[in-house]
Every structure is written in structure tokens, then in C-alpha cells.
Nucleic acid binder design. Structure first.
Lengths: 205, 205
DNA sequence: TTGCTCGGTTAATGAGCGTTAACGTATGGC
DNA sequence: GCCATACGTTAACGCTCATTAACCGAGCAA
């Protein structure tokens, strides 16, 4: 494991939208392949081939295969959380609007980044202890965002009831990767209705 | 791959509930381990150790590691389908009752056999083409069972809408493996309400 | 007893794969 | 012009791991 100029955070600090750097290409393809065949099911040679370089060439960009997975999982967790926080901030005060915004955000995410969503709950255990702890912490905070607003909206439900419901709705929304039919628009619409329908059941106790 | 007296179906043809045969022990432990760490993440030595024998001893009971996974996935798919068919038969004529029964059955299954439910949609791709086709066919038939009754109950929804909703509710119910709190009874009750809430959203179009 | 089958054991084999070594080549600042 | 750096390449190396070989004791039927 030779040391690399590894930019622990995302590259190009400015936030510009330039041509995708090689690093980003690799991450995207690795995500796709990991999601398709599992972390252990994909070889470094395959990942390399997917971006037009061969096997060990990857080690110019990442210290190892593990590091790719770690960056993917930490990255997705961070994006989910900060996205969620922004949405909560935007609509603060109106719990119904907050929940709607969280649902919409999560749907966008599930539809745009299927492979990452898949990885998110499939391959967490392959991480080094440190990374896994970080990811779990981020996940927990994201869930708490939802739980808080759900309890505000349905005060009769208990803490663990709300938390379970949130996890269940995540399961519902993340079921997306398995399907393709139905087109983006109607998919969005349908998932939204199903999610709100599920949450609504918390009221009719 | 030496040939084995491999009983393609389940052992002890009588249907008695005897002490679990060695074969069954192995399958149960393999399911647990595969669910925890993924098919590639578990070694045969580990599976052997889990039942008190060592690595290659498994080959007295299965022709290979793949065969264990195949039997698990085919088995669960068959049980889901036949269970579903029985429930549909029992309550035929009353779509609402049929759907309720399917939901209850699936919940029981998800709560009783978490590891298998996890495997079911995580490791399908590790199967030989033949087995994978068989599993997918069984899954499809099971889904069709649901789709038929959902469309009967909500005639306004299109075929693909109904199918997507069914998959989504599966995702909701199968989210179970991730949690532990809340006790069996209330978990059942909550999942039931969430699932019906989601389906109900198909009406309010 | 004999000898077959059942269910184990440990040691060897051989492939796959992550990682490292050693080596090239363009490019861009000095 | 020079040389360091970035980015690749191919060829080992070494480990893990599924599978096979070779061997063994306990029942148990004839």
C-alpha cells in the first residue's frame, strides 16, 4: 500500500463541472460493477478495463481496492446527509413540507444513483472498522432527520415505531434498482404516493 | 465435483419434524453466513466450523459451495410461491382478504427467515445460469400472484404501476433484516399497516 | 470376521486475485 | 535541453480458498 496524493475529499476544490477526472471515472465504474456483482465478485482488472486502463494502473489513483469502496460509501452517506439537512432547513417549520421534501430528495437519489444505493446497504461490512463506523454514524444522523419530522407529524407513534417506519420506507424507495419499466416521471410520482401512503398509516392507528 | 446422493428436494420425504439432519444444519448456517458477509465473503472452512465439522467435510453433503447457495435460493423461492398460492386459494373471491393474507404471509416469512430474505435479492447473480433462470421464474410467478390481486383491488392502476408497487412493498417488508427493536408482535402489526397504507395510495390517484 | 457404506480427517493442488516491482513515455516548468 | 512528475505497462509474488486425494474409524449386514 504505497501512499498516494489521495484527496480524501472530492477532487477539484472549486466545485466546477469539468470533464470527469480519471478518479471519478474509476469511482463510477467501480460503483456499477460492485453493485452488479458484489465487492468480492469484481476484480481490479475488470475495474481497470472499464475505464480503459489495465489492472494495476488503478494504484496510481487509489491505494487499494478497499479504498474505492470506502470512498464510495462515505461519499454517498455524506451526500445523503447534507442533502437532507439542506432540505430540512429550507422547509423548516412545516413538518408536512419537510417530509415531502425529504421523500423527493431520496427518490431523486435512488433514481439517479442506483448503483450507490445498492452498495449502501449491501457492502457496508467490507469496510475497515474506522470507515464503517463513520458511514454508520452518517447513516444514523440521516435517519434521525427523518425520525424527528415523522414524530412531529405523527405524535402518537413511538420513537422505535417511527424509526422502523423510516427504515421500511427506505426499503420501499430503494427497491428501485430492481426495476426499469415505467419511465422516470411516473416512477417518481408513484414512489412518492407509495411512500406517503405508508407514512400515512402511522396516523390511522 | 464428485457426485453425491444429492436429494434435489428436501430430505426425509415423510414431512416429519425430526431432529435437523446434518444437511439442514449446514444450509441454515450457510444462509446465516452468506447473509452476513456475502457469498464470496464466506469460506467453506467457516461454514464447516459453524456446524462442527471442518472444511472439506462439507463435500460429503454437497457437490460444492455453489450448490448450497442454489439450494437455498431455489428453496426459498419455491416456498414463497407455494405459500402464496395456498393463501390465494384459501381466500379466493375476496380480493381484499387475499391481499391481506399475502401480506401477512410475506411478513411472517421476512421475520422468520431474515437471512434467506436477504440472500434472495443479494446473491442471485452468483448462481449458474440454469438455477438463476429457475429462481427468476419462481419469483416472477410469485409477483404475478400479487399483481393480479392488486389490479383486481385497484382497477385504475396499470399493469406496470401495480408491478412496481408490489416490488416496492416487497422492499418495504424486506427492510426488516436491518432492525431488531420493537418485538415480533408490534413489528408484524406495524409492517402490516405500512404495507396496506402503501397499497392504499394506489386508490387515491 | 469380513467388508461395505457413511461421514469424517488432514495434506496437497491449483486457480484467482490483490498488490508490488521494474520499467517506459509524454509533458511542462526551469 | 533537462529532468521530475504523472500515468501507464507487463511481469512477478504471495496469499486465500475451493476442490480433490488419500486415508480412517464406526456401524452393521451377511
Amino acid at each position: 500500500m504505497t501512499t498516494i496524493p489521495t484527496p480524501t475529499t472530492t477532487p477539484q476544490a472549486g466545485g466546477r463541472t469539468a470533464a470527469p477526472t480519471r478518479r471519478e471515472q474509476i469511482l463510477r465504474e467501480a460503483a456499477r460493477l460492485f453493485a452488479e456483482r458484489g465487492f468480492h465478485g469484481v476484480g481490479v482488472d475488470e475495474i481497470g478495463a472499464a475505464v480503459g486502463i489495465s489492472g494495476p494502473g488503478l494504484y496510481r489513483h487509489f491505494p487499494g481496492k478497499d479504498a474505492m469502496l470506502a470512498e464510495l460509501l462515505v461519499g454517498i452517506s455524506e451526500r445523503l446527509l447534507t442533502g437532507g439537512r439542506i432540505r430540512v432547513g429550507e422547509t423548516a417549520g412545516d413538518p408536512e413540507a419537510v417530509l415531502a421534501s425529504l421523500v423527493d430528495g431520496h427518490i431523486d437519489f435512488a433514481l439517479d444513483d442506483r448503483p450507490l444505493i445498492t452498495l449502501h446497504d449491501r457492502e457496508l461490512d467490507r469496510l475497515k472498522d474506522e470507515d464503517r463506523k463513520r458511514v454508520r454514524q452518517l447513516q444514523r444522523q440521516y435517519v434521525e432527520l427523518w425520525v424527528a419530522v415523522v414524530r412531529e407529524l405523527y405524535p402518537d407513534s413511538s420513537e422505535s415505531e417511527a424509526r422502523t417506519a423510516v427504515h421500511a420506507v427506505f426499503g420501499l424507495l430503494n427497491s428501485t434498482p430492481h426495476l426499469a419499466a415505467l419511465g422516470r416521471q411516473s416512477m417518481e410520482e408513484l414512489l412518492r404516493r407509495l411512500a406517503h401512503g405508508a407514512f400515512g398509516a402511522l396516523a390511522r392507528a
